[in-house]
Each structure stands twice: as structure tokens, then as C-alpha cells.
Simulated scan of single mutants.
Amino acid sequence: MTDRHRLTSVDTVEEDGAWLFTVRDAHDINQEVMLVPCEDSSQKVNAYINTCTHEQQPLYRDEVGVVMRDGGVVCPKHGSVFDSCSGECDNGPATGTTLSEIAIDVDDGQVYLTDDSVDFLWGGGDTDDDDDGSPSSTSHLRF
């Protein structure tokens, strides 16, 4: 679906701790993707769908970005930690699961989206135009 698309620089991901962008998948669904630093990789960054495997919670949140601990991405809801280099989780409710990876390439310090299963839409998160700022609810009532 996509050609190689420049996203940002490795330096930006390392300095900011993460970088968020939005793609559209083959089912016409928008997905947020986060770039996170990975010291053990030759690319120095990896890209994962911005969703905890346990309860579909976003790992990157606008208010704080990504919480990192000992080379891992921490789920802000339950505390599971995903290795930033492999996406694997070995603790908490998400134990035994792996984050969904999106293919990227790093060339001369620049990060490129190379995953053929998605199309780049924009830098930043997916916004809901119907969001009026009120808390979400599972009922028909809005507060």
C-alpha cells in the first residue's frame, strides 16, 4: 500500500522518548503507530501499533507520551512492560503477548515507513471529529 515515506529522525525519537503517527490499514481502519527507542537494534528505533495487547489501551498518550522503564514500554493501565526491541511482554496481565510491529527502515539517521500493509496518513494521533471533550461512556448517556 505504501512507498517508503520519511517519518522523522532517530534523534527526535531518542530525544522525545517516542514519536506517534497515524496510518490506514488494508481494512480502511486508522491505526496509531508509535516509534520507540531501542538501543539493542541496529536501527535504534522500532514501530508498534499503539495498543496494549491486554485490553486495547493506548500505550502512547498525548499527555505524557510513552512511559519507558528499563528499555520497555509500560502500559499505563495495568503496568505490563513490553520490550521496546522485540515487543514481547513477560510480566503483568499481558504476559506472553507481543505488540504488533510495523515495518520501518532507518537510513542515514532518518526513519522511513516501509510497511506495505499500511498507508501513512499524518504525524500525530488519530483524532475523533465527533469528540466533544466529554468522557466516553458505554451507555447512551454523555456527561
Rank of each mutant, 00 (worst) to 15 (best):
Y48A: 04
V73Q: 05
L59V: 04
V45F: 03
D130H: 10
I29Y: 03
S117R: 11
Y48N: 05
V118A: 02
L20M: 10
I29M: 07
D25K: 03
P58N: 09
V45E: 05
S84G: 00
D129W: 03
F120N: 01
V64C: 06
A26F: 04
D28K: 14
D62N: 09
N30P: 10
Y60S: 06
D108N: 15
T12P: 07
D62M: 05
E15W: 01
F120T: 01
Q31Y: 08
R142V: 13
K44F: 05
F143S: 08
G71R: 11
N46S: 08
I102R: 02
H54E: 01
C89H: 02
R142F: 09
T53K: 01
S86M: 01
G72C: 13
H5R: 15
D129H: 06
G87R: 09
K77A: 12
F143T: 05
I102G: 02
V81A: 07
W19D: 10
N50T: 03
V118R: 02
D16K: 13
P58D: 07
M1S: 12
H54T: 00
E32G: 08
T127I: 04
H140S: 11
C89L: 01
V81D: 07
I104E: 01
Q31V: 12
W122E: 13
G79L: 04
A47G: 04
A94H: 02
N50S: 05
G17R: 08
W19K: 09
Q110I: 08
C52H: 13
T95F: 15
T22P: 06
N91K: 05
I49R: 03
R69H: 14
H78G: 01
K44G: 05
V67G: 09
E14V: 14
S9E: 09
D62S: 12
H5M: 13
T98W: 02
E63M: 06
V111S: 07
P76C: 12
V45I: 03
W122L: 07
V33E: 01
T53L: 00
R24T: 06
F143L: 10
I102P: 02
D3T: 13
L20H: 04
C89F: 02
T2R: 10
T127S: 08
S134A: 12
G65F: 07
R24W: 00
W19P: 00
F143M: 07
H78F: 01
L121I: 14
V66E: 09
T12L: 13
D62H: 10
G125S: 12
G65C: 07
W122A: 10
G124F: 09
E39P: 08
H54Y: 03
D119M: 02
N30I: 06
V36M: 02
A26L: 06
R142I: 11
V23A: 01
G123K: 00
G87E: 11
T12E: 15
H27P: 00
L59D: 04
